[in-house]
């Protein structure tokens, strides 16, 4: 079901619920609270919820290798990220760097990113930048594997799926300090 059809159906349902909720609320009651959210199920969100987290939640079925991903990369990514992920501008370098380098470190997927899941999550939601969400899940796995391979993190024929991807320890995996407790 397309997103807009899904939205339209929920919309109709929520209008009906709204009328019901307003009708049920006792006039002048302090307790009366409108509750207009339409009840849905996680199942209905399968094509909508794209969050692929480090614990593997949200990762779809499927798998891919860097060898397969090279073809996807050359077709869909090369124009902006260049040969071997070298980039064509500051924000398109996705390979290389060293957090311990003498000079200010080049921070890329390989040198900086703490979680491999982020690569799948980001490519699936936002790349290729000229046509986001146009890759199949299989292609996302393949090209994720290719970017990891270019960074020397996995071998060319290592199969990447929800389990193997989230098991990868990234080179800078221990490089982050979570300050969320301070706020």
């Amino acid at each position: 079901m397309s997103m807009s059809k899904f939205a339209a159906r929920l919309y109709k349902k929520s209008l009906a619920l709204a009328a019901l909720a307003l009708w049920m609320a006792p006039a002048g009651s302090q307790e009366a609270r409108i509750q207009l959210g339409a009840h849905i199920t996680e199942d209905q969100l399968r094509g909508f919820d794209l969050i692929a987290a480090p614990d593997g939640s949200g990762m779809p079925p499927g798998a891919g290798t860097a060898r397969e991903g090279r073809e996807v990369y050359n077709r869909r990514c090369l124009a902006c990220h260049n040969l071997n992920g070298e980039g064509v501008s500051g924000n398109t370098v996705i390979v290389g760097g060293d957090m311990q380098s003498e000079e200010s470190p080049l921070r890329t997927v390989g040198s900086y990113w703490p979680h491999a899941s982020t690569l799948f999550d980001f490519i699936r939601r936002a790349m290729p930048a000229d046509a986001p969400k146009s890759l199949t899940d299989e292609e996302v796995y393949q090209v994720t594997a290719y970017v990891l391979f270019l960074n020397g993190i996995i071998g060319e024929d290592q199969s990447i799926n929800s389990e193997t991807l989230t098991a990868i320890v990234m080179p800078n995996g221990n490089g982050f300090v979570d300050l969320s407790h301070l706020h």
Binding site: S14, A18, L22, L36, A38, H39, I40, E42, L45
Partner: peptide, 12 residues
Amino acid sequence: QPLAFSYENLLK
């Protein structure tokens, strides 16, 4: 309970 809110309903 997972929920979905339309814009029109949020305005209420």
